[in-house]
Design a protein around this nucleic acid. Structure first.
Length: 565
RNA sequence: CGGGGUGUGGCGCAGUGGUUAGCGCGCAUGGUUUGGGACCAUGAGGUCGCCGGUUCAAGUCCGGCCACCCCGACCA
């Protein structure tokens, strides 16, 4: 491709709308253009890069035996109602009506559609296992699109689905995909970490995310440097500092004027926060729920949401708390009735806690579970944090931020049961198919690759996803000798199978060299009066600071080495 | 949805109520240049986000709305 003819111009200044690196560079390199919030057009260079990522993913999916297919973006709303996910997804679902007023959705993912498809194709265990995937545009009406290609409302996703006879077989499929994902990340120049993840609205049990560690990411990750345990904060377990057991003392009311927060209360009474009980009220799908946890620990709302099996969870308003007959700031777990009560196991570790008295400016000392109060559900809802103990070993958890580039789920029989996707096993018994699903955001992978591979001059493309292999530059283009040598080289390199971006513009050397750095092809080749004087072409990797002149007849081999080594 | 911010040529920005709205980059034409964003000359390009109000006069003041960005909530 000739740069003089390429649609899409580079920019010297960074558009003010962009504040993360990949967004800035994609815009400056003329690769993308925003149409509305969360939707982008890809210009030729960006589209080429996206297709490279796509093909990298495709190759790895095929390598593990995946079969590519293509499902419709339009889906009937009814199948979402059958699995209840219309509720789970809520407003994220883009919906529309057709001319007969039938309700349709723009596919945000395809579990329902593919389960329905597989149901009709699979009857016997002999038809399994299956690994099916597609690469397609998805639509999700995210509450807040952001970060350029990082979080958008319309995006290309590779979604794969596995179908197996039993859990062991599903585990095998899952492991294959995990390996493929590791290869994909590696080829895209991304050192990723696989972390335990929450499976969210998609349903199912086990789930892992592939995280690129980056401060700009919006997921919190906790990991143990000792044993390798790593988990998304949403899912992370941890060992909290444990408390000493004492004799249970008699309950005693104390005046605590104006003490509303745990911190104030602990300071006022001169006890550590871990000697207090924190009462929190949530509205779970509109129902007020009482939650009690040790005062030094925060509630992990994702865990709580899973425990309550609700779709929407928020802190209850003061009005809702009052209506429930409770006193915010001094709410007590004792004597609570008429609402669900959830306790975190941390309340069993420690004793003689300070808790609310359920009247203003008053708390109660020496509260003990289960002597003084009961809960309906005792489940881990504790938020892990850096400094906590690793749940697997004696190590200490540390925290970092990450960008989620891939997500894999063991779905089990959630969809197959609801949609009736069954098969007959060897014994002629009808059983639901074991499923898994596996997603990669292609555009996000692209953005993450840039986020990870750049310098202050521009992008540094990993070879497998570079829009072109070689950035060929002619300097002094009004010299006939240089121009014709560059033209000849351009043709020859393409004949040898290289993908070449040829800067044939009549621009000054500074402009051309800076653009070469910005656009970031893996190898740069320069033809100039200086290089021709040494009978050659000047060649260097994007990552190298010094170039070397190679003779014209040896340039092909040299480029080959630079691209593969 | 809560908090904050920004809307002025393609990009980055300036513009104290008062002529014909400027500057840099980019763009066009001609010329001089040519190894890290050259220079000279000439020129094109604007519903100042939208609607309404105040005023003799609004890019500028007031009200409403919209869009986009950031933080949070949310995120299969």
């Amino acid at each position: 491709m000739r740069l003089s003819r390429l649609f899409g111009k580079t920019m010297r200044q960074t558009p003010s709308e962009a504040d993360n690196v990949s967004h800035q560079l994609l815009l400056r390199a003329g690769m993308i253009h925003q149409v509305v919030a969360g939707a982008y057009s890809y210009l030729p260079l960006g589209w080429r890069a996206l297709r490279k990522v796509e093909n990298t993913v495709r190759e790895e999916m095929d390598r593990i035996g995946g079969q590519e297919l293509h499902m419709s973006v339009l889906q009937p709303l009814e199948i979402w109602q059958e699995t209840g996910r219309d509720q789970a997804l809520g407003k994220v679902l883009f919906t529309l009506s057709d001319r007969r007023d039938r309700k349709l959705v723009l596919g945000p993912t395809h579990e329902e559609v593919i389960t329905e498809l597989v149901r009709r194709q699979v009857q016997s265990y002999r038809d399994l296992p299956l690994l099916l995937y597609q690469i397609q545009t998805k639509f999700r009406d995210e509450p807040r699109p952001r970060g350029g290609l990082m979080r958008v409302r319309e995006f290309t996703m590779k979604d794969m689905y596995s179908f197996d006879t039993d859990e062991d077989a599903m585990d095998v499929s899952y492991a294959k995909v995990v390996e493929a994902y590791e290869r994909i990340c590696q080829r895209c120049g991304l050192p990723t970490l696989m972390v335990d993840a929450d499976s969210g609205a998609i349903g199912g049990k086990e789930s892992n995310e592939f995280m690129l560690l980056a401060d700009s990411g919006d997921d919190d990750i906790l990991y143990c440097s000792n044993c390798g345990y790593a988990a998304n904060l949403e899912k992370a377990e941890s060992v909290k500092p444990s408390m000493e057991r004492e004799d249970e003392l008699a309950v005693e009311e104390v005046d605590t004027p104006g003490m509303v927060t745990i911190e104030d209360l602990a300071n006022y009474l001169g006890v550590p926060r871990s000697k207090t009980l924190k009462a929190v009220f949530y509205a779970a799908d509109g129902e007020v729920v009482f939650v009690v946890i040790r005062g030094d620990i925060d509630v992990n709302e994702v865990k709580l949401m899973n425990a309550l099996k609700c779709h929407e969870l928020r802190l209850a308003t003061d009005d809702e708390v009052r209506e429930a007959g409770l006193v915010a700031g001094a709410a007590s777990p004792m004597g609570i009735t008429g609402m669900r009560r959830v306790g975190d196991p941390s309340i069993t570790d420690g004793c003689n806690f300070v808790a609310g008295a359920n009247k203003p400016d008053t708390h109660v000392k020496n509260v003990n579970y289960p002597r003084d109060f009961a809960v309906d559900l005792m489940v881990d809802i504790a938020a892990a944090r850096a400094g906590d103990g690793c749940p697997r070993c004696h190590g200490e958890l540390r925290s970092t931020r990450g960008i989620e580039v891939g997500h894999v789920f063991k779905l089990g029989t959630f969809y197959s049961e609801r949609l009736g996707a069954t098969f007959l096993d060897q014994d002629g018994v009808e059983r639901p198919i074991q499923m898994g699903c596996y997603g990669i955001g292609i555009g996000r992978l692209l953005a993450a690759a840039i986020e990870q591979n750049h310098d202050d001059k521009g992008i540094i493309w990993p070879v497998p996803i570079a829009p072109y292999h070689i950035h060929l530059c002619s300097l002094s283009s009004d010299s006939g000798e240089v121009a014709s040598a560059a033209e000849q080289l351009y043709v020859r390199l393409q004949e040898c199978g290289f993908e070449v971006l040829f800067d044939d513009r009549a621009e000054s050397p500074g402009v051309k060299l800076n653009d070469a750095d910005l656009l970031g092809m893996p190898v740069r080749a320069i033809v100039s009066p200086r290089s021709l004087k040494s009978q050659g072409v000047e060649v260097k990797r994007r990552t190298e600071s010094e170039a070397a002149v190679v003779p014209l007849d040896g340039v092909v081999e040299r480029l080959q080495t630079l691209l593969t080594a």
